[in-house]
Nucleic acid binder design. Structure first.
Length: 592
RNA sequence: GCUGGUGUAGCUCAGUGGCAGAGCAGUGGUAUCGUAAACCAUCGACGGUGUUUCGAUUACACCCACCAGCUCCA
């Protein structure tokens, strides 16, 4: 068994290990069934995953979901035969003999030979023999509830230079009940897809005329974005950050100096001037911020200097990478850079992450996340800039921060930024994919490349360190995630419409207009539903819009000079309008 | 960019090699209504460009957009 797999299994509970073995067996059943149905197919590889399993194979014939019933039937046949899974060990020669004509398995054989491990094979009855170190359940009959989910392409070894194989995803559970529950859960999560909710709640849109991956926020979506921005900028100013503002383009030279141009040249938008000049739309803000820092001499007494702004960035992403609000070609982020001494780094990062924690907690998002310690991949040093020693120092600092703040971060090698390691706040989206929101990055390299300086106590010039940071990251991604978590029922302070006034009949419209104005005058976002509809219809619509409060006005309310309040949970109460204003104002202020 | 799929009205969905259908929304009316959909009428669409065909929304090709996955993500 490979070291990686061994470590992975060690971390699992006995139940998880059992499920893993079951899914792994289901995967063998899948590839055996495929081999039976498509004799020309070349098996490549297939593991169990946290959600199920998949198998990658090479086949000229096209396979679509329409073929699933046929494949599932063959799988069921193998399951019904209740074939035992038997482990065998062979030598190199035998292994090469068995997988003759299959370059993928040959590669595994070479790899295993190089590692000096034993050639372990698993046999399903007498039908299938595959290179595999297990573990498995004892027989195919143990696979009680499985389902094929989707078919997709996947590069061999995950490298786009390699051939694209066909991948079939499936899942498997100990019982039919568990499987159904899982499928139901997936369906529910998909119904909370931010793209669907954004359309339904009228928050943002796209246009073919404007272009792919270019989002536009509607008035309601803009309210959410602006409220987040206000709250965030206030939070940042609490620890002394100063707002700055930069243009959306710069000369290519700026990014050649920072190192971005070399690494991301295919993703830069180029803007041509009529004066023989060429600019690029800014893909990041750090280089601009270094130039604000560099605009005057700095003393150690000035440090740390923290710049922050909410601003758009533009990246010409590969078409296949674009989707919804999670990856657009123009997006706003809350970006900031702290210039400090080496000694100040840890304290500054801690301060920033604490700010983020507070911000996420306000929105009930702290706890849904996991923390990635995104370190560099020591195997591919060419992907990064800066000194080896600085990287080690920075990564050590992030480990300390992780420990101090009990972030429970996972080290992910290869996820670092070009110039330094990061601590990333990660969330799951409605499709269970990881998305990065907040990020905190230590950068020794860029200040050197821009030749940034400060004067220390002894009057000597020193190079500062840069901390790149975003608390919520991209507003689009953040709003998408918040939408998927809340189903669109935003807290009152973020709700585009906080109160909807519903007169019961035409008789109350005049009165309702006055009450609406009173609410508007105290800064509450309120709408009057004066359509010629029944109360039930108005409530239904307001409910679907996820409006936190409805103010219902009929003859009774007018007579008593009171309002009837219905919240979006369906609870009713009656009170004076002034009292309602106090309650809602209080709720909004306490949130922020 | 790659593999596979999808594209019919603002939204959700039918349907067809020969006049494209519904529900909701919108608009005009009637009812003046008490906590999740009143009633009647009415407007509105085959993503684009070519090809085959007497005739293409339907078949084919290309383009565009969207979806899932892979790759990428400063």
């Amino acid at each position: 068994m490979s070291k990686v797999l061994e470590e992975k299994l060690e971390k699992m509970s006995p139940e998880e290990q059992k499920l893993w073995a079951l899914r792994h067996t289901a995967e063998h059943v899948l590839h055996t069934a495929l081999q039976n149905l498509y004799p020309k197919l070349k098996k490549a590889m297939g593991p169990a995953t946290s959600e199920g399993f998949y198998h990658d194979f090479d086949l000229d014939e096209k396979i679509t979901e329409a073929d699933f019933p046929k494949i599932e039937k063959e799988m069921q046949r193998l399951i019904d035969l209740d074939l035992p899974l038997i482990q065998e060990f062979v030598d190199v020669k035998k292994a090469r003999d068995i997988f003759k004509g299959n370059p993928y398995k040959f590669e595994w054989v070479d790899e295993i030979e190089k590692r000096g491990e034993k050639f372990s094979l698993f046999k399903i009855g007498d039908i299938d023999l595959d290179l595999c170190s297990g573990p498995h359940v004892e027989s195919t009959g143990k696979v009680k509830a499985f389902k094929l989910l989707s078919v997709a392409g996947a590069y061999w070894h995950g490298d786009e230079k390699n051939k694209m194989l066909t991948r079939i995803y499936g899942t498997c559970f100990p019982s039919k009940d568990d499987l159904l529950k899982y499928l139901e859960h997936v369906k529910l999560a998909k119904s909370n897809d931010h793209r669907k909710l954004g359309q339904e709640l009228d928050l943002f849109c796209f246009s073919d005329l404007v272009g792919k991956g270019l989002v536009m926020y509607t008035p309601k979506g803009t309210i959410i974005k602006n409220e987040l921005q206000k709250a965030l900028m206030n939070a940042c100013k609490e620890f002394g950050a100063m707002e700055v503002n930069i243009p959306h383009m710069a000369k290519l030279e700026l990014y050649e100096t920072s190192g971005h141009a070399q690494k991301f040249k295919d993703e830069l938008f180029v803007v041509k001037s009529h004066h023989k000049e060429e600019f690029v739309l800014k893909p990041v803000n750090c280089p601009h911020h270094t130039q604000i820092y560099a605009s005057r001499p700095r003393s150690y007494k000035d440090l740390p200097i923290a710049y922050v702004e909410s601003t758009q960035q533009h990246r010409d992403e590969k078409p296949g990478a674009i989707g919804g609000l999670n990856r657009t070609r123009s997006f706003e982020i809350d970006d900031g850079h702290t210039f400090c001494t080496k000694e100040q780094i840890t304290e500054e990062v801690i301060k920033l992450i604490k700010t983020a924690e507070k911000f996420y907690k306000q929105l009930n998002m702290w706890g849904n996340h996991w923390v990635s310690l995104s370190f560099r991949d020591p195997k591919t040093p060419e992907k990064y800039i800066g000194d080896e020693k600085d990287w080690q120092t920075a990564q050590k600092m992030l480990l300390d921060v992780n420990k101090t703040l009990k972030l429970n971060g996972k080290i992910i090698e290869g996820e670092a930024a070009l110039y330094g390691p990061k601590i990333d706040i990660m969330m799951k989206d409605s499709l269970n994919n990881d998305v990065q929101l907040g990020t905190f990055q230590i950068d020794f390299a860029m200040p050197k490349r821009f030749d940034l300086k400060y004067v220390d106590q002894k009057g000597k010039e020193q190079t500062p360190i840069m901390i790149h940071r975003a608390i919520l990251g991209s507003y689009g991604r953040f709003i998408a995630n918040l939408l998927e978590k809340t189903g669109g029922a935003f807290p009152t302070w973020l709700s585009p419409v906080q109160v909807k006034v519903l007169p019961i009949s035409e008789r109350q419209i005049e009165y309702a207009t006055e009450e609406t104005k009173k609410l508007k005058d105290v800064g509450i976002r309120v709408e009057l539903d004066d359509r010629n509809e029944t109360l039930s219809a108005k409530i239904r619509d307001a409910q679907n819009e996820k409006v936190p409060y409805m103010v219902i006005l009929g003859d009774k309310e007018i007579e008593k000079d009171e309002v009837s309040i219905r919240n979006r949970e369906g609870k009713n109460s009656t009170m004076k309008l002034s009292k309602f204003i106090d309650i809602i104002k209080n709720e909004i202020e306490n949130y922020q």
